[in-house]
Simulated scan of single mutants.
Amino acid sequence: MMNGTIDQIQTGVEFLNADKAIQRIPEGASIMVGGFGFPGMPRHLSKALVRRTELDQLTLIMNSLGSVSTLNALFEQNRIKKVIGSFFSTNKELVVAYQEGKVEIDLLPQGTFTEAIRLGGAGIPAFFTPTAAGTVLAEGKETRIINGREHVLEQSLTADVAIIRAHKADKAGNLVYKKTAQNFNPAMATAAKLTIVEVDEIVEVGELDPDSIGTPFIFVDIVVKREEV
């Protein structure tokens, strides 16, 4: 039986401000960014990432990079090498840059994108899916007939860093999400070497309902409390 109370257990989670947390991101990193549009997007951390102007050659793994996204500033500053996600067509400048060969885009159906992150976090390197079979998104990829239906081999996704948004964290690093704002965030927390989470509130260990915890502390490295609404 474990000795001592739970609040005496050292989890290794750090509590930093946004700029110090973003300093941990290496040059040329691949970065997962949570959020479905604005809900669940770590906007406070995103602004800190934009402020760290020397950081470039980045690969962003996120559902969308719209023209109104905070992180679109990275594209405007020529700091993005590649984006991987599902929805970029609203960002006309990004589409033109892709057509001109200035930025790489890996377009994935949204379900495939989500599953690729989930399986990356589970340590499964690839999977077959019928989604996109027979379309341009399947070109150059291995296919296989399974149960009489064509399937496409997709690579799972992992990243150097995940910057995500949660509603609350306790002082051990356990996370609670708020309604649909959880979207991609819990899966991304499991699929990165370094997970940085932005939260509205930090509470004492024991204050969170165990049944409401969406991400346990084992997947969390740095917690940042939002300094703005």
Rank of each mutant, 00 (worst) to 15 (best):
T70K: 08
G101D: 08
L58P: 02
M32I: 07
A192T: 02
T143L: 04
A73F: 07
V229G: 07
Y177L: 12
V161M: 05
L157A: 02
G37M: 14
V205S: 02
R149M: 06
V33A: 06
R118F: 09
T158L: 00
T158C: 02
T90Q: 15
G4F: 12
E204D: 15
K141F: 11
L58M: 10
D19Q: 14
F184S: 07
P42W: 14
S89L: 05
E139L: 15
A159R: 10
A181R: 04
L45R: 03
F113D: 03
A73W: 03
E76C: 01
A21R: 04
L16E: 09
S86D: 02
T190D: 01
H151Y: 07
T180E: 05
T180N: 08
V199E: 08
V229L: 11
I196K: 02
G148F: 02
A159I: 01
Q77I: 00
L119K: 15
T158W: 02
L137K: 13
S69K: 02
K168S: 11
P39M: 10
I145N: 08
R144Y: 01
M41A: 15
I84L: 00
T5P: 00
A169T: 10
T114M: 15
S156C: 05
G206C: 06
V224L: 07
G134E: 07
T11N: 04
P130I: 06
E201I: 01
F219T: 01
Q99R: 15
P186H: 00
A172I: 03
D106A: 07
G66Q: 12
E100I: 06
G4Q: 08
Q182F: 12
E93M: 06
A126H: 14
R43D: 12
G134S: 07
S46W: 10
G34W: 10
K141Q: 11
E76K: 15
I31Y: 11
F217V: 03
R51L: 00
D170A: 05
T135H: 06
D160E: 05
Q23S: 15
A18C: 10
L119I: 05
G214A: 06
I222A: 04
I213N: 05
V199F: 07
F127R: 03
F87S: 08
L157V: 02
G85K: 05
Y177M: 14
A73Q: 15
K178M: 12
E104S: 13
Q155F: 01
V50C: 05
K102A: 13
E93T: 11
M62Q: 15
T215I: 06
E201G: 04
L49P: 14
R144G: 00
Y98P: 00
P130D: 07
